[in-house]
Simulated scan of single mutants.
Amino acid sequence: MKMLRFISILEGTSLLLLLFVAVPLKRLMDMPEMVSLIGPVHGGLFIAFNLLLVLSVSRFGVSAKHALMGFIASLVPFGSYVFKAKILSKY
């Protein structure tokens, strides 16, 4: 569970960096390099977070409802932080 908590913070941070730093730099200052750098990192963390979420259902007794909430939270800015604070703190 510690790894899931850690990855949720990393995934949430990478999403925020992508949305609020890299994309504005690309669109406003014509600097697509940041998206090329942060995008794949975020993609890998997104996949790792959701794989760990699925594994935690079978190994740590996380309910399917909470896993679905975690997946939805990973799609929303700041969602991973809220998921970690509200849901993962119970496990």
Rank of each mutant, 00 (worst) to 15 (best):
K26N: 07
S80M: 11
K84P: 00
I38A: 02
E33T: 11
S56V: 04
V21F: 03
L25P: 02
P24H: 09
L53Y: 14
L10C: 10
V82F: 11
Y91P: 01
I9G: 14
A73V: 10
M1D: 07
F46K: 06
Y91W: 13
I87L: 04
A85I: 08
V62E: 01
P40W: 03
L25Q: 11
L18I: 13
S36G: 12
P24L: 14
S74G: 06
A67M: 11
V41T: 09
A64P: 00
D30I: 01
F6P: 00
I9E: 05
A48R: 03
M34F: 05
K84D: 14
S8E: 02
Y91K: 10
G70C: 10
L55D: 05
K84N: 15
A22L: 08
S58E: 07
L19G: 03
F60K: 15
S80V: 04
L10R: 11
G39D: 01
S74M: 04
R5P: 01
V62K: 06
L55S: 05
L75C: 11
G44C: 04
V62M: 14
V21G: 01
L17Y: 03
S56F: 11
S74N: 05
L25K: 14
V62A: 06
L10P: 02
A85C: 01
F78I: 07
T13W: 13
V21I: 15
L16E: 10
V41F: 06
L51N: 06
L17A: 13
L19F: 06
R5W: 04
E11A: 14
P40L: 08
T13N: 07
V41Q: 03
G61N: 12
V23H: 03
K90S: 12
L15W: 08
L15H: 07
K84W: 09
L55M: 14
G44S: 04
S56P: 00
G61D: 05
S58T: 12
L88S: 05
F6D: 01
F46D: 01
V41I: 15
L37G: 04
H66T: 11
V57P: 00
L37N: 05
V62P: 01
P24V: 14
I87C: 04
K26S: 08
G70E: 08
S58A: 11
I47N: 01
S8G: 02
R27H: 12
L37D: 04
L4S: 09
V21T: 11
S14W: 10
E33R: 09
L45W: 14
S36D: 08
L37C: 08
G12K: 10
M69C: 11
L45Y: 13
A48E: 02
F49Y: 15
S74K: 08
L68E: 06
V35T: 10
I9V: 12
G79Q: 04
S8H: 05
L68C: 10
P24Y: 04
M29Y: 13
Y91Q: 10
L16G: 13
K90E: 14
P40T: 15
S74Y: 08
S14P: 03
S74P: 00
K86T: 11
S36V: 07
K86P: 00
